[in-house]
Amino acid sequence: AEDTGVRVELAEEDHGRKSSIALRLWVEDPKKLKGKPKDNGAIEFTFDLEKETPDDVAQEMIDSGFFHESDLKIVAKSIRDRVALILWRRERIWPRMQ
């Protein structure tokens, strides 16, 4: 996945069972963002792999004032890339469970 300057990681162990999972997002390189992020804290949140989309969360982060509207795509892509990796890994490790 291309480096967007926004890092998204698992905030808990993934055992492949739960559909909702804790993720942690922070800005690694603010120069890659169009707008100025509110502060460079790590934002932890729960994401439902089956029911939600990265764009939902990205929009909520903008509504909450963490990011500027012009960074919606970058934030959504950063979350999407991590979610894709989580799903890919689940397929590999627990194929029957998916």
Partner: peptide, 27 residues
């Protein structure tokens, strides 16, 4: 504590904590 919590109108909670220095790229 240095954790702050923001709850979005759709109900999702965002918990903000400091990023460990080691995880921030050199500015």
């Amino acid at each position: 504590s240095s954790f702050t919590q923001v709850v979005h109108s759709a109900g999702r909670r965002f918990i903000v904590s400091p990023v460990p220095e080691s995880r921030l790229k050199e500015q």
